[in-house]
Simulated assay, not measured.
Amino acid sequence: MTERGSGALERDASNLVIGPSSVRWEDGALTIDIHEGDTRLFVPWQRPVIGKVRVLPEVLNRAAFALDAQENHIWHCLAPRARIEVEMTSPGLRWSGKGYLDHNRGAEPLETGFDVWHWSRAHLKEGALVCYEGERGDGSLFASALRFDRHGVPEPVDLPPIAHLEPSKWRIARRTRSDIGVAEVRRTWEDTPFYARSELASRFAGEEVVAVQESLDMRRFSSPIVQFMLPYRMPRRKR
């Protein structure tokens, strides 16, 4: 979470280097080498954050999806199901578990294309389910639910009913989808003035699941006070 100048960037077909950290495909896994500092608010020094993360896809999906009619914003769920291995040397932590890998790319800033979005994903007994919805910058709405089978092939399915969630501590409006229109926030992992990521107890495709959910408010992100605060949360370096 450090902003860096173009001189800190290197990339080719298999590698991405940003400053002292890097991402690369190696032995079928996405390997992330982290060498950064933490981002505590109002603290003038940074503790080192050093370690390695490996994301091992269980299935891969080749299809990408446009989030707007002009195709200015593309979402690609590369690995709807994956395993993750984390080994940090500073702080000394290691664990493994279930994972997921996607990315967004676009021809314009996110705050131009979107006002709000809500996203959630859950492992199923076979495959995974991803729900994605929101409001674009022009006021139009979008919503979809994709079920990925055990081979990673996506299929659109009917959207489950809306399940409203309690707002985050920063009063970000959150919602998800659930078979019965009810879901429970178990933990909130990331809570900022414009973004929240949470763990939910929910129900998809007739299964009781643990889901990951995020809500993003780009109107909040664009506000002058949040833009003023960002450099304190995301340090900026030339290299």
Rank of each mutant, 00 (worst) to 15 (best):
R186V: 15
R186S: 11
R186W: 08
R187T: 13
R187Y: 14
R187N: 12
R187A: 14
R187Q: 14
T188E: 15
T188G: 11
T188D: 13
W189T: 05
W189K: 07
W189G: 06
W189N: 03
E190H: 11
E190Q: 12
D191V: 08
D191G: 09
D191L: 10
D191E: 13
D191W: 05
T192Y: 11
T192I: 10
T192N: 07
T192K: 10
T192M: 11
P193G: 09
P193R: 06
P193H: 10
P193K: 02
P193M: 11
P193F: 06
F194L: 06
F194N: 04
F194W: 12
F194K: 06
F194Q: 04
Y195C: 11
Y195R: 07
A196L: 09
A196S: 14
A196Q: 09
A196V: 15
R197W: 10
R197I: 07
R197H: 12
R197E: 05
S198N: 06
S198K: 01
S198A: 14
E199Y: 06
E199N: 04
L200Q: 06
L200A: 07
A201L: 12
A201I: 03
A201Y: 05
A201Q: 12
S202D: 09
S202M: 07
R203Y: 09
R203E: 14
R203P: 00
R203T: 09
R203C: 14
R203K: 13
R203L: 12
F204P: 02
F204I: 04
F204K: 02
F204C: 03
F204L: 10
A205L: 06
A205P: 01
A205G: 07
A205F: 07
G206C: 11
G206P: 05
G206L: 09
E207W: 08
E207K: 09
V209R: 08
V209M: 09
V209I: 15
V209T: 11
V210S: 14
V210Y: 10
A211P: 08
A211D: 13
A211W: 11
A211T: 06
V212I: 15
V212F: 09
Q213G: 05
Q213D: 09
Q213V: 02
Q213A: 12
Q213M: 04
Q213K: 01
E214V: 03
E214H: 05
E214A: 11
E214N: 08
S215I: 04
S215A: 15
S215M: 11
L216I: 14
L216W: 13
L216A: 14
M218E: 04
M218V: 08
R219Q: 14
R219E: 08
R219F: 03
R219I: 12
R219G: 10
R219W: 02
R220A: 13
R220S: 08
R220I: 05
F221C: 03
F221V: 00
F221G: 00
F221S: 07
F221P: 01
S222T: 03
S222M: 05
S222I: 02
S223D: 02
S223I: 00
S223C: 00
P224T: 02
P224D: 03
P224M: 01
I225E: 03
I225T: 02
I225F: 04
I225V: 12
V226R: 00
V226N: 01
V226T: 01
V226F: 00
Q227C: 00
Q227K: 06
Q227P: 03
